[in-house]
């Protein structure tokens, strides 16, 4: 399935990826070809096939409801680009 530039712009926006026009044009081409390849899937009859999300047929294990994680704010925020008063800072969020 061929993509048009609008599809790529839309995906880039949803994925919050800044793209310039040249890059976008390149991705339109690449992704169209990858999707063409992916379209080979359409030839298979899967009407009675259940989707497989995990290769093993196992089920979710549950964790006991216990507090096991101590406060490690200082360590975790050492790798943060901008913090103040223990808060992560981001450009103003307008509600």
């Amino acid at each position: 399935m061929a993509l048009d530039p609008e599809d790529v712009r839309r995906a880039a926006h949803l994925a919050r990826l800044g793209l310039d026009d040249d890059e976008a044009a390149g991705y339109v081409q690449d992704l169209s070809r990858i999707l063409d390849m992916a379209d080979r899937l359409q030839a298979v009859d899967t009407e009675h096939v259940a989707p497989l999300a995990h290769s093993l047929d196992t089920t979710q294990r549950l964790r006991a409801d216990e507090v096991t994680e101590p406060n490690q704010r200082e360590r975790f925020q050492r790798c943060a680009p901008a913090v103040e008063d223990g808060l992560y800072l981001v450009p103003r969020v307008v509600e």
């Binding site: 995906a11 880039a12 994925a15 999707l35 899967t46 096939v49 989707p51 497989l52």
Partner: peptide, 25 residues
Amino acid sequence: LMGTHTLSEGFFDAYYKKAQQVRRL
């Protein structure tokens, strides 16, 4: 971009779900 596109509305069944079915095969 590829993953965002195939998961987005209108494409999910044709790509993601289909691929998961083929995965079972």
